[in-house]
Amino acid sequence: MKMKKWGVLAVSAAMVAALGLFGCSGGDAKPAEDKKAEEPKTEAPAEMTLLKEGTLTILSSPDYPPFENLENGEIVGYEVDLFNAIADEMGLKLEIQPLQFDGIIPAIQAGGQGDVGVSGFSVDPERAQQIDFTETFYIDDQAVAVMNSNTDITSENAAQALNQEGVIIAVQSGTTGEAYVQENFPNATVQPYGNGTDCFAAMQSGQATAVCTNLAVVKRMLADAYPDAHMVLEIATGEEYAAVVSKDNPELTKALDAAIKKLQENGTIDQLQDKWF
């Protein structure tokens, strides 16, 4: 028994030590890199740091058509095309690392996995405490869809019919759609799912009455996968989409902002929006 206790203690001490080490390396490695980058050219303005020389690594959750999703094993979408253009503009190669939506902001903060988080992030003051947002490159709205078999909720009465007890609205957890439903349909039950596709699957299988998520996503889902559902409400909430960058890397944010502005001016962004939406 005694031996066992000591063993437990030793293991937990080892774990704490490991965490501590990890913490140190996470905390110390970055500034060291920054110094390295800065020291040789003290005169020049601070350089942006990239995970890999010459490559812009973006983190994205490819389950959000038409912004980014997997098609024949490749990640495609508006944001993918846009960041290809941005990387071109910056003279960099683009690399996409898939990651779950809720893991992207933590990963960008922690560093080591990617330079920019690009996954339909809307600008939000709470998120802005953790990371920096780039310039916005898309403005999206919210929409609510129900199954065709549901005749109780129609385009005419949607705003009232959705705000009722017993109505279950599927949302993607942690998104602005969730916040919108909580604010505007307080009587309905909000049912969060891990991603947008699951929200629709849940509605189709009867676990939820309706889905509330971004307009472009709803439109794409209805067109591609759910012909038996339709949109009942469209709300021009005007959410501004932007990419997220670590607060330690303000130069990268500036460079991205410059590239986004340029693409806005030369019409590339408009072209891409016409292509995808």
Binding site: Q109, R127, Q130, I131, S173, G174, Q191, P192, Y193
Partner: peptide, 23 residues
């Protein structure tokens, strides 16, 4: 069960992680 929207430990934690960006 978090994956299918059962509000258990991970689901609640996930929701807060997604909105605050902290682990």
């Amino acid at each position: 069960l978090a994956a299918v929207g059962v509000m258990e430990v991970v689901m609640y934690a996930k929701t807060i992680v997604a909105s605050t960006g902290s682990i």
